[in-house]
Design a binder for these strands. Sequence first.
RNA 1: GCCGAAGUGGCGGAAUUGGCAGACGCACUUGACUCAAAAUCAAGCGUAGUAGCCCUACGUGCCGGUUCGAGUCCGGCCUUCGGCACCA
Length: 829
Amino acid sequence: MLEERYSPHAIEVKWQKYWEENKSFKVEMDKDKPKSYVLEMFPYPSGNLHMGHVRNYSIGDVVARFRTMKGFNVLHPMGWDSFGMPAENAAIKHGIPPKKWTLENIANMTRQQKALGLSYDWDREVATCKEDYYKWTQWFFELFYKKGLAVKKKSAVNWCDTCNTVLANEQVIDGKCWRCDSVVEKKDLEQWFFKITDYADELLKDLDLLEGWPERVKTMQRNWIGRSEGLEFSFEIPELQEKVAVYTTRPDTAFGVTYVVLAAEHPLVEKICANNPKAVEIKAFCDKVRNQSDIERTSSESEKEGIFTGVYAINPFTGRKVQIWITNYVLYDYGTGAVMGVPTHDSRDWMFADKYGLEKIVVINPKDKELKLEDMTDAYEEKEGVLVNSGKFTGMEMHEGMQAIMDEAEKMGIGSRHVNYRLRDWLISRQRYWGAPIPIIYCPHCGEVLVPEDQLPVRLPEDVDFNAGSVSPLATSESFVNCTCPKCGAPAKRETDTMDTFLCSSWYYLRYTDPKNDKAPFAKKANQYWGPVDQYIGGIEHAILHLLYSRFFLKVLRDAGMVDYDEPFANLLTQGMVIKDGAKMSKSLGNVVSPEEILEKYGADTARLFIMFAAPPERELEWSDQGVEGSFRFLNRVWRIVYNYLPQLEQKVTSYDTAGLTEADKELRRVVHGSIKKVTADIDKRFNFNTAISTMMELVNALYAYKEAKQEANAGLVYEAISALLRMLAPFVPHITEELWRGAVDADSSVHAQKWPEYSEDALKVDNVEIVLQVNGKVRGRLTVPAAATKEELEKIALADANVQTHIGDAKVMKIICVPGRLVNIVAK
RNA sequence: GCCGAAGUGGCGGAAUUGGCAGACGCACUUGACUCAAAAUCAAGCGUAGUAGCCCUACGUGCCGGUUCGAGUCCGGCCUUCGGCACCA
């Protein structure tokens, strides 16, 4: 029996319990049904859900429930990205073991998620910190290792002193640590890398396949990968009997080279210093540059500095002797770590040449004029022009010259065409405790040895000192470090670093397809059925990090034959932030609204409805307490109208005779079917949940208007309207619709097990339409005409209109434009 | 500097293919109900002119263009947000 008043808490608890006990959202493979894999980015178990989570999960839940009703077999799982620093910090600060802290947080956040009424298959839950998960993370490390994609190498890496660990390039934002904002230092260390650069070209190219991704995210990834094409060629250094290779994207300016610059770390520096009277000075300069932080070094505003080495190189194209300099503005780890200096056509070189009085030669002229050095105030960098002062290439158009000079370099054997990427290899080792240990053993005889597969997982020890400093806390556990070599049995030592948590999250979406498998990370069959993710939903902050790493991971697995598609996420929706008073919710601003507080006051359905209604999903969402109030009001309105129509619904009349409908009936029927058409398209094609909801509000308004109409309600029509309304609202507000469905439509079935409603074209038809009368494009009147009116009839009616005639006045009618069903426009002069 | 997204009432936002700008909601105003208030139901609500309706003019960041007709298309700017940036 349906209560007269809507009381959210009682019904929400009731249906949540029912769904849980009945495992209502459990799914299995079913070859007879089309599948859909809907996934929200799994959270870090920080302890409490925030509004961003609620938004993320509400969007996912609407999509999942909608597709289920549309007949898809929907995979909609949830899990935990549960390794990471906060757990370790809790251990350091409060002495709570990371595992305990993490599991308690997971328990609390799971409770909060369940209170939102989300349709997850909880049997598929994964947590990356659990042994049955990180065992496979380690297994993947071994796979990458065997394929030569996991390598240990020494290089200058990013070090965060606050977090006591190295960081990947992607985790350094503006020279600062992504997590704690401390300035990152460079350190020369031997570390484990994943060779993501091997896949740079494919990661770039395949972005074109991702039609269902936002342009913004693809652009960010393109920028990050940073592909450039150019020429790599060498200058001879006769006095050292050496060569120095440079990389340039402007080979057309090769005849304008007046000097060569090296990065301070360049290996030639040492040779240059041997028997060099300026050796002490040069070394001091290089030390100074190397000690600058990345921020100082790479800021384009900072002063360019350099020192002349006293050594010369020969430009292979001109035979000219040019000075070799060392500077702070050349990056050692991009290209060859050395650059040719062309002051006239590169503004950085211009500044440098000005400062140190180096020669300038014009080698490109704009198409229509001649450059004169004395008139120039900066380099000419435009991408069009004609070569001059360039030997046999003089007179060539710039792009033609570029190709010709590259051909020449290849012919001369001094260089070749080359592609460079900004993307660097992914540094995956971390000197931290709460992560998956790297499954490597160092043996004094055999060297680096993988832990045999049957000995995985390498378990995290518990007897560690979390304040170990610049080494991983794992190094303080004797029982962990000391082991025997799997190959020769000699005493050996374990690797003590753990893996970047982004590695754990690079494959979790695959585990969901087969979460309990203890023979493999997932069965190929399960993945063939469920994969790839059809709709991925998450924050834009992962545009590069997680989304790039996952794409890389999947391509490696594809090449290993484990999956047979190219991209992990076919469609991506990046939701906007939830803000209040114009700013991101934060403790320091005091503008945080906690989900629990809203749930307590209004219930989950109101919270979900408001979040879906207040803004389109990709945009920022401005929190409004009054808006929440409005959503609550709407749900009450829905409740009341259903309650009001109980007498009609109880007759169980489920059909009606279309011939016997009154005008009011027809109008309601038209709104019902029009709503079904629009709501379906808004959810399915456009993800415009806000307009879907506004359409349903209009439907509710129409039901109120129908109630006011001076006639008896048509029970069959009312049944159709209420039944469609509840089904369409069900993905958004699952509890209230379930209660109303069972109480007013069908006590024995769940609204969530129903088919999505369908509309009939026939019901959309109208007898009369209102058309707009225009004179010269301006609206001068409105008329209701039969929908079937012909062009000729419309023209006649339009010309007869009094106001239209006033506006035509004495002018002559030139022509009449008729858009049936919309307007008549009279062009008069 | 390069790349991307966006600019519409007091506010959040609609207008999907070039065809009535402002759907829906919030806020506000009024009426009904009530002793009263809340809740609810009904109505109004871009700006200006008009007591008021009708009506008229203006109105989607700015300037221009195409078109019978432009929030929407084209050219040129401005502003805001986001990404990359000494990447040769």
